[in-house]
């Protein structure tokens, strides 16, 4: 990815620049395949003749999730669509191909999901881009038109800037939010989406998790959560200390935690830094975007939750310690239910 940056897309940060260069190169070569974006959450851009026909990311719900969580289709149809996805279709496209969803309705939802996924990819950490020309595009040509990569990047940049301009900054997939006690909002009329967010904000879920749970766009939910943070309805949960107790000194010592991914191919200094368990007090301002919020002390009122509040039990206390080993002599009912006249494909 050493080609010159695209002229029309201003590189707003390193992630934006890296992805923009990769996509514009695919555009110039009219490439067909999948551009895998490694990072957290990362994603996959499906390209047809250089145009983006679909984007999948663990950081944003796809069309199928939006459909099934909103009640538009039921879980059985969703499972059937997943099976159809083996033919190369996205699950959402399989639903549309089955006639359960109008083409126009699918295209609207699909474009929303694509834009949301691009936002999620750029809001996270981006390590590298790798193009796979062998993988097929995920949509049949003609069902949904491809989009110019520049359009997607400009819109994602606008969304990132809008999110960064809010008084409270919330990361879509790193900040976990909890509802502030009901007295603050019990008597107020709340928008339905806010009530849904309050119902889901249990301190364990990020805006991304809530978006998956209720079937809304992750950008929509992140903006709403950031506003609710500013209004005191929800609060981000600070990360607990990594190790409240000193690590065990016994041998064998557990190996140190390995880095998540290989080092970025380019100096990705201003990219969104990876959240570590230790509160990073030394995170510097990474660039044109104000940094998305990090785990940090003092972010939220209230102390860190007690990390030791868990059920506990020593392993092996039941006395059952043996491995489930296939070489062990088995119990005596081995041939108990074996049918006498079973058919064998290799029998004469």
């Amino acid at each position: 990815m050493t080609s010159a940056p695209s002229g029309s897309v201003p590189a707003r940060n390193a992630a934006h620049g890296l992805l923009g260069r990769a996509l514009s190169r695919c555009r110039d070569e009219r490439a067909t395949g999948v551009l895998h974006v490694q990072g957290s959450p990362g994603g996959a851009f499906h390209l047809l003749d250089g145009a983006v026909v679909a984007v999948e990311s663990p950081g944003a719900p796809g069309v199928g999730t939006l459909l099934v969580r909103s009640g538009r289709i039921d879980a059985d149809e969703w499972n059937a669509a997943h099976d159809a996805a083996g033919t190369g279709l996205l699950p959402g496209a399989a639903i549309a191909a089955g006639g359960r969803l109008g083409t126009a309705e699918f295209q609207v939802l699909h474009m929303m999901a694509v834009q949301d996924a691009v936002f999620a990819v750029l809001a996270g950490r981006l390590d590298n881009c790798a193009f796979d020309p062998a993988a097929p595009a995920a949509l049949p040509p003609g069902l949904a038109p491809g989009v110019e990569p520049e359009e997607l990047l400009v819109e994602a940049g606008r969304r990132l800037a809008a999110l960064a301009s809010l008084p409270r900054r919330v990361s879509p997939d790193r900040d976990r939010v909890t509802a502030v006690g009901p007295p603050a909002w019990a008597d107020e009329p709340l928008a339905p989406v806010r009530r849904e967010i309050l119902g889901c904000a249990n301190g364990r879920r990020s805006p991304r998790d809530i978006a998956f749970l209720i079937g809304r766009g992750v950008y929509t939910i992140t903006v709403e959560v950031a506003r609710m943070c500013a209004e005191g309805l929800v609060e981000t949960v600070p990360a607990p200390p990594a190790h409240p107790l000193p690590p065990p000194v016994a041998d064998p010592a557990p190996p140190p935690p390995e880095p998540l991914a290989p080092a970025p191919a380019e100096p990705a200094g201003p990219a969104a830094p990876r959240p570590s368990l230790a509160p990073p007090e030394d995170v510097a301002d990474p660039g044109p975007y104000p940094p998305l919020p990090q785990w940090g002390p003092g972010e939220a009122p209230g102390g860190a939750p007690a990390a030791e509040g868990l059920p506990r039990r020593e392993p092996g206390a039941s006395g059952i310690r043996e491995a489930l080993d296939a070489s062990r002599p088995q119990s005596g009912w081995k041939g108990f239910l074996r049918p006498r006249g079973r058919s064998r494909t290799d029998s004469p």
Binding site: R174, P248, P275, L277, A307, L310
Partner: peptide
Amino acid sequence: HDALVAEMRTLRDQVV
């Protein structure tokens, strides 16, 4: 126990 809890939480934070 605390190291175990930290390890479990790390996995939840690492994988979206």
